[in-house]
Design a binder for these strands. Sequence first.
RNA 1: GGCGAUGUAGCUCAACUGGUUAGAGCAUUCGGUUCAUACCCGAAAGGUUACUGGUUCGAUUCCAGUCAUCGCUACCA
Length: 688
Amino acid sequence: MKERLLVTSALPYANGPIHFGHIAGAYLPADIFVRFKRLNGADIVFICGTDEHGVPITLSAEKDQISPKEYVDKYHKVIKGIFDKFNIRFDSFGRTTHPDHYDLTQEFFMNLLKKNLIKPSMAKQYFCASCNKFLADRYVKGTCPKCGHNKARGDECTSCGSWLDVLELKEPSCGICSSVPELRETKHWYLQLQDMSAQLDQWLSEKKHWKENVITWVRSMIKEGLKERAITRDLSWGVPLPLDNTEGKVLYVWFDAPIGYISITKQWARDIGKPDEWKKYWLDPSCRVMHFIGKDNIPFHCIVWPALLMGQVEGYNMPYDVPANEFFNLDGRQFSKSDGWYIDIEDFFTRYKTDSIRYAIAANAPETRDSDFTWKDFQGRNNSELANIYGNFVHRTLAFIIKYFDETIPQQPAKLSEPALKAREEAHRLIDEISSCYNNYEARKACFLIMEMGRLGNRYYDSEAPWATRKSNPDRCAETIGFCTELISYLAYVSYPVIPESAAKLWRMLGNMTEIDMIPWDRIKTIRPAGFKLKNVAILFEKIEDEQIQAEIDTLLKNCEKAGGVKPASPAASTAAPASGPVVNIDDFRKLDLRIAKILEAEALPKSDKLLKLRVSVGGETRQLIAGIAKHYQPQQLIGKNVVIVANLKPAKLMGEVSQGMVLAAKNGDVLALLGPDADISDGSQVS
RNA sequence: GGCGAUGUAGCUCAACUGGUUAGAGCAUUCGGUUCAUACCCGAAAGGUUACUGGUUCGAUUCCAGUCAUCGCUACCA
């Protein structure tokens, strides 16, 4: 039976454009996975859309003097445009302001309410009369009761970092208009997460296949104890409560957002003219639901969202897996438009190709820990991997066919020679390995193995030297080139999930009539392109010049400076480590036995370029020291010198030689200088 | 503050439940080759696995502590 999957990527918040960090965490990995699974014949629906409610949107809209609706319309389009540029293909890119979504969200609420998993309760909250709205904690400003800082936020003091209860804040003012808010009683509804923790824990305990970081993190959260959580707020923008006398109250955005996964699937079903089709994915238990997210979303998708699903009567499929990625930063710091620490995506695509960036991100994806985008890395991935290894292997082979085989892929002999058979075996092994990487969300390793295949091709090509056999052994030459095109077919195919556009283009260059994504994965090993006439052969990946990358780096730094952001420390500023560290007392210092030693003999250690073996005299005693100073001193120039050594250092073995102490030297970058006494003094003298 | 993660070659990362000499790629140096996008192929060099202690015949791996970096801490999506 066909594998059936419903894959989602976290719904981006329609409050601004998304950046590389988002792409690397939740979207590109999902797109690669979906493309791979489709090649394997899986029946998949890939869902995403914009999350369009919540306070930040209302505030941003106000700032721009447009309605929230106009505001999210704008960003829905902007974000969709970005996904198109990245060639991330959702079956449906919906939105949470769709009427279907309102209906379904209210249904979710009512079901939970009936099961007593949502309960109302009264709370005190600041209300700003001039803004005519209740204020979320973080929008109340005031004086911190702990440190007296006068610009503390209601949830946290920005100066001392303490956690605050908004009610203990002194001299509160409205964070939006600065007028004095009043305390009002208001009724809110709370999700009773604590009542579901046993059920959630039981459910999670079965998730043996989840990523370890996800499962341990979530289960420890449950162990710490779940608390009820407010799901409503006083606002006009959002899904209204489906109860009487609750005007001005909407469901909190986090409550309605994940429900979007289902409501958008419904929108999709309607769009394709089969309104019940969504049930195959959400109600049929054979379908696996997978949520690709960034790590910041783990609690929502592994606790809150399953809890919402458990409280329903429909019997929706629970998440089968939640592949969460870590963060993708820009050279060590989170992307931040307000700090000028960002890359303008529109601008980016005027100069670079989609597949270059897809590859660069995938090859460096934050699968197990945070990772970085750097311009240098991007250039390196593009030039030395895509262009030099992958692109060049393709090009040298195809150019050869054009020149010497009349643009037609030569036939391979019925029985291949030994080197080709060995290379084929290796290539087939790589295909299997790449397949399992894609299955395990290891795009990064898959990229590496794709390049391994490219290297395999180049190695084979070099060892066969078809440019020589062309004259000496034309049959062998034809076999070589024929087999290289077989390798290129593999290469195009296995790289398709990551670089779909280039792979498809390459596939067509080889003269294939069938589109690459119509070939099932289990047939790929039998592909034998021969007799095809090449079509539209062209360079796949252009190189990126150093000057251009430097210009990008300069632009980034300039933007950062303009925004008043902190410029990253220039590595050229200082090579010496700052003179600081833990403070020691005099007793600690006295533990060191520092002595003057006279160097009697010095010789280089044969197998080391850094170490010198010294014989020194310390007050009549002779010792052997190993010192890492060979790059800075010739053995001869050391003989007779007085130096300072640590005499009571525990002896250590370096390169098989015992070192009974340590010679002191000062170091700054590449400069190194030995310490010695200012005047002549006998060896063995104590240093204090 | 609490919880968690991470720290391995100049850079980016590997190393299943502890087990020969800690591995790749990029960058570097040297050599080869000329079909190709000045590419490719080969070789070399490069490490006190953050630090300190413990368990063990044996620790990058397990434990404790220290330092550093980062994340989450749920009315910031």
